[in-house]
């Protein structure tokens, strides 16, 4: 068998590929009803669960002690920003905007946890402590996802 001489330099070989995972995720009772509330009622529901208070958005159990069940509580559509991450260069195919925007955590009035979402306007005035209000995707365009809340907007 002949030895094959190794070249002194080897041009790297590469291939670009997009790997697609077309997942369809089951929501379950609690997440599914919360999302239906966004789509059909334009309401934001929390669930009062064991040792966590009113959790928004809710899970099917308490994250603290894993107890299931709880009482539905409608929370305000206005709340206070507890964290801000201002994205100056959005990432294509991942971020919900091609223009600069901010991710925020918002503790809605009546909730004991904060919801993660985005703010698209008046970013120069946005900071921890800002009051914001949910803005909705128009009727007929809400699909039953967290993005049925189109964004949060600063309340003047």
């Amino acid at each position: 068998m002949k030895t094959f001489p190794k070249p002194a330099t080897i041009e790297p070989m590469s291939q670009r590929m997009t790997v697609a995972f077309p997942y369809k995720r089951s929501t379950g009772e609690i997440v599914g009803r919360f999302l239906a509330g966004l789509r059909d009622q334009k309401k934001i529901w929390g669930l009062r669960v064991s040792r966590q208070g009113v959790v928004v958005p809710p899970q099917s159990y308490s994250e603290v002690d894993a107890k299931a069940g709880g009482e539905w509580v409608e929370v305000s559509q206005t709340g206070v920003v507890t964290a801000v991450a201002e994205v100056t260069r959005p990432i294509e195919g991942l971020h919900p905007s091609t223009e600069p925007f901010a991710f925020v955590l918002v503790k809605l009035d009546g909730a004991d946890t904060a919801i993660a979402h985005v703010v698209r306007t008046k970013l120069d005035r946005l900071r921890v402590g800002s009051r914001v209000r949910a803005a909705w995707a128009p009727d007929g365009e809400r699909r039953g996802t967290i993005r049925d809340i189109e964004a949060f907007e600063i309340v003047d």
Partner: peptide, 23 residues
């Protein structure tokens, strides 16, 4: 006093992850 009984059953999560593999 509660969200709709008729829930959203599924979420379509169409992931498209870009890779650049080296041989």
């Amino acid at each position: 006093s509660e969200p709709p009984k008729e829930r959203v059953k599924y979420i379509d999560t169409n992931l498209n992850l870009p890779y650049h593999y080296y041989a």
